Simulated assay, not measured.
Amino acid sequence: MQAMTQLAHDFLKPILHSQAICVDGTLGRGRDTLFFIEQNVGRVFYYEIQSDLFEQFQNKLNQQIALKSQKVPHVIGYCHSHDRIEHDLSAYQGQIDAMIFNYGFDPKTLSGIATQANSSLRALEQSVRLLRKKGRIALVFYPHPEGQQEKEVLMDWLQEQTNLHVLEMRHPFKSNSPSLVCLEKISNE
């Protein structure tokens, strides 16, 4: 079975095209941003609050761009919280095609720096407003206490939204496995 991140990519892939505008709301090691770039989309924006991870990825990206002979999409990174997304991307209101967020912290990094429920909720609220009709957002939740608390807050908010289709994928018999929540915007309410 595929990892949740791969399932998230599979969910987003059908709506990606050469003019697509995509956002990685939680850069980490950059797998999701690189996925968008590999799909030859039009623009990619990414967010990372940790300056060391941000700089490492910037260097990696610059190296990869130098090696490629093909066209690379317009890529812009923000080294601050994703809860400023609507301010940063106000010119793209109702135009974003695809977004992805990985909540909590990546257990492989063990840095202890995790996304926070309040800022993640603000980012998700803003992201839904930025999303175009039929646009999609993939939310991956890691199974540790901070990630579970964050998931509860976001799921409570999502339950009240009438302009989104919501689907959750998780392993039914493993409480300590990641879960994926897939969102598709059905109206611009």
Score class of each variant (00 low, 15 high):
158 L>W: 03
159 Q>Y: 09
89 L>D: 09
157 W>Y: 15
156 D>G: 01
79 C>Q: 13
11 F>N: 01
146 E>K: 14
51 S>H: 06
46 Y>I: 00
177 S>Y: 14
80 H>E: 14
36 F>M: 04
97 D>E: 06
54 F>V: 06
186 I>V: 14
59 N>S: 12
114 A>Y: 00
56 Q>G: 04
127 S>Q: 06
148 Q>A: 05
46 Y>A: 10
143 P>Y: 06
47 Y>N: 03
117 A>I: 02
182 C>D: 02
16 L>V: 06
13 K>A: 10
180 L>W: 06
23 V>R: 06
77 G>P: 06
107 P>F: 04
157 W>L: 11
40 N>G: 10
135 G>Y: 09
83 D>Q: 10
124 L>W: 11
94 G>W: 08
100 I>K: 03
183 L>H: 06
75 V>G: 01
126 Q>Y: 03
88 D>R: 00
28 G>P: 07
72 V>N: 13
109 T>G: 07
182 C>V: 00
51 S>G: 04
119 S>R: 04
18 S>D: 09
72 V>A: 03
35 F>N: 01
119 S>K: 02
184 E>Y: 00
126 Q>N: 12
48 E>H: 02
32 D>W: 12
132 R>N: 10
23 V>P: 03
181 V>Y: 07
9 H>E: 02
52 D>W: 00
165 H>D: 13
164 L>S: 09
31 R>H: 15
2 Q>K: 13
91 A>V: 07
162 T>N: 11
47 Y>Q: 04
54 F>Y: 15
163 N>I: 03
16 L>M: 07
127 S>M: 08
133 K>Q: 14
163 N>M: 09
90 S>Y: 12
67 L>D: 12
150 E>K: 07
44 V>Q: 08
96 I>F: 05
142 Y>Q: 06
14 P>W: 12
54 F>K: 05
125 E>N: 08
66 A>M: 10
64 Q>H: 08
77 G>I: 03
174 K>E: 07
149 Q>R: 12
96 I>H: 03
102 N>A: 09
188 N>R: 14
41 V>L: 04
75 V>K: 01
17 H>I: 00
161 Q>L: 02
112 G>Q: 05
163 N>G: 09
68 K>N: 12
126 Q>F: 08
107 P>T: 04
49 I>F: 05
170 R>E: 14
77 G>Q: 05
185 K>A: 04
182 C>W: 01
24 D>S: 08
40 N>V: 01
117 A>E: 13
14 P>R: 08
155 M>W: 04
52 D>P: 00
29 R>F: 11
164 L>A: 11
115 T>W: 10
178 P>W: 04
64 Q>K: 15
168 E>L: 00
23 V>W: 12
33 T>R: 04
89 L>R: 00
167 L>G: 11
85 I>W: 07
119 S>Y: 11
24 D>F: 12
118 N>P: 03
